[in-house]
Design a binder for these strands. Structure first.
Lengths: 109, 109
DNA sequence: AAAGATTACTCTATCTGTCAAAGTAATAAT
DNA sequence: ATTATTACTTTGACAGATAGAGTAATCTTT
């Protein structure tokens, strides 16, 4: 398990990317993250919903209510065009960050 | 300039790496980070000294006073053997984190 | 039909890391 | 003398992450 402090700041990217693929609801996203990372990273529920609030406020995602199939009422999120531009920035930023950290980690093991 | 929020959690690694190379003092480290990253990342003073406190408490670095050549009294830090082991863990963690984030960023631009 | 498991979301209080701002103090340059 | 630079410290505030508790609907098991 990876410390979440180190993923901090990348949650926006991860969640936006998943919503870009298709509209998704919270619980689904949390499952998807666990699956794709083979449980090496799990987003905490409280964190996930905090991210949604932040992203909605920034107007990079929009919510709408879906079915109530098996369990609670699902709240779906879609990405806005502003969101697509934002994600694109985040991808560039990630490339930069990787370079910077690698600069200090290289030659070590 | 990279948002510092996204570097968060990697400061321990960066600083430990620089101290591993040789004993260093705060101001020197801050300059070194700016130089190596071509000013694309600058650690804030307050942050740097907060990191030192954290690392000392964890006993991964030790401090001693040096000269007073040109300016204030320098406080040098050296890495402990516990610190070397800790850094080694952080390097492994970085490899893991990179994989995880890349998983979500791949195919995008 | 009742009980428990699972799905799904919300809210509050707290913790940690980062940082702005302000301060102290010594030396070097003008 | 004054200003710039080097060097460290402290305080208070902020933002993101999270534990924990709560609400509610549906499915499974007995």
């Amino acid at each position: 398990m990876v410390r979440s402090d180190i993923i901090r700041g990348h949650l926006d990217s991860i969640i936006l990317r998943l919503i870009l693929e298709k509209d998704r609801y919270g619980y689904e996203i949390s499952q998807e993250i666990s699956n794709r990372t083979n449980n090496s990273f799990q987003i905490k529920e409280a964190t996930l919903y905090a991210v949604f609030q932040r992203l909605e406020k920034k107007e990079v995602i929009e919510a709408y209510y879906g079915d109530v199939s098996h369990g609670g009422k699902r709240k779906y999120y879609r990405i806005t065009s502003l969101g697509k531009a934002y994600l694109s920035e985040l991808v560039k930023e990630w490339a930069e960050v990787k370079e910077i950290i690698d600069l200090f980690m290289e030659g070590l093991e």
